[in-house]
């Protein structure tokens, strides 16, 4: 038997009325949260997904030497924040996000830390990686449909001043034909005082934009966080069509001496070299798409969304307009058009 309380929920009926019916492995859920234990829960014939916050894992990931009480406090804050942010989004009519349906905490006796906070979500069919295939032409329309959903989700979040910050394949959840953004746990909102609001980047560093990798942070909060989302959306496009992340593709084209962990100079100094790596990355990316129209349009989207310097990232027309570089509206329209064209091609 696992010694952590979060691992011992199976068979229990929670105070919220949900019965824990199955413990899920990574293969089954893939929420992207590494400090949680996941289960299937059932109530009134409805099956949902439960994310239990695992104190032991939280402890492992915390700064060495930190007091246990403080770590517990951090975990509770993270739990509350994700719950509140989810409610905030739901109340503001966001639709393309996997919401918290219910939240609670359970005391599991006979454990050193017996309290287990949890969140219950609608059960997804899986994350996008379970669906993505790279050889089938038929998947083209599906991919664009999914990317359109993601762009809409981001647009909705941005409209209420929320930046997702952690967009990556494991956080794109599939619900039949619809894709939704999962895991708001690392998101930040200007209206909510969260644990991450003051951090320059809150998401997964593996998907972080180059300015973050090279330690450059724009002081303007809005500019910084929305530029990050813009890049992350572009990185998803890259992953959907090339099978690797934009950051990996970019680093593939940057000389070893200039890798982010080796570079000791300022971001400004390395910009020409990143620009060169980026240009070569786009050339390589383009070769993964056969159809000339989609090749041109999709690589242009990636170029605008993932441009390595935040000031020049976004749609060119938005860049010209002060203060709205990262407006998703134009990208949503572009994905919509591409999706429709791809669907039309598939049907004919």
């Amino acid at each position: 038997m696992e010694t952590n309380a979060a691992h011992n929920l199976l068979g229990i009926t929670l105070k919220t009325g949900w019965t824990v019916v199955e413990k899920l492995t990574k293969a089954d859920h893939s929420t992207g949260s590494f400090f949680s234990v996941c289960y299937k829960v059932e109530k009134d014939g409805v099956v949902c997904f439960l994310k239990a916050f695992d104190f032991a894992k939280f402890f492992q990931l915390s700064e060495p030497g930190k007091e246990i009480v403080d770590i517990m406090g951090d975990m509770i804050t993270a739990y509350q924040y994700e719950r509140d942010l989810s409610n905030h989004c739901r109340d503001k009519h966001v639709t393309k996000v996997a919401f918290v349906m219910e939240a609670g905490q359970e005391i599991i006796p006979n454990h050193s830390i017996s309290i287990v906070p949890y969140l219950i979500f609608e059960l997804a069919d899986g994350d996008v990686r379970t669906q993505l295939e790279y050889s089938r032409k038929l998947d083209f329309a599906w991919k664009l449909h999914s990317l359109h959903d993601i762009a809409v989700g981001l647009k909705q979040l941005h409209a209420i001043d929320v930046s997702h910050q952690d967009l990556k394949p494991s956080n794109i959840l599939l619900y039949k034909k619809e894709s939704k953004l999962g895991d708001l746990g690392r998101s930040i909102c200007s209206d909510l005082d969260g644990p991450y609001n003051r951090m320059p980047f809150t998401g997964d560093i593996n998907y972080a934009p180059p300015e973050i990798m090279y330690n450059y942070y724009d002081n303007d909060w809005n500019k910084r966080v929305f530029a990050t989302d813009c890049y992350l959306l572009g990185s998803m496009v890259v992953f959907y069509f090339s099978g690797i992340s934009m950051s990996a593709l970019l680093l593939k084209h940057i000389p070893e001496n200039f890798r982010w962990e080796r570079w000791r100079g300022a971001f400004e100094e390395i910009k020409p070299y990143i620009a060169d790596g980026f240009a070569n990355a786009i050339v390589e990316f383009r070769e993964n798409i056969q159809d000339p129209y989609f090749k041109k349009e999709i690589s242009l989207l990636v170029e605008q969304l993932c441009f390595p310097f935040p000031d020049e990232r976004g749609h060119p027309k938005n860049i010209e307009m002060v203060g709205s570089n990262f407006n998703m509206e134009r990208f949503v329209s572009r994905f919509d058009l591409l999706k429709l064209k791809a669907e039309y091609q598939t049907k004919n």
Binding site: V128, R129, T130, L132, E133, Y134, K168, P169, S170, N206, F239, G243, I244, S245, S247, A248
Partner: peptide
């Protein structure tokens, strides 16, 4: 899966 492998080698 290929997608999971791609995600891992990217990271």
């Amino acid at each position: 899966t290929i997608a999971h492998a791609g995600d891992l080698i990217s990271a």
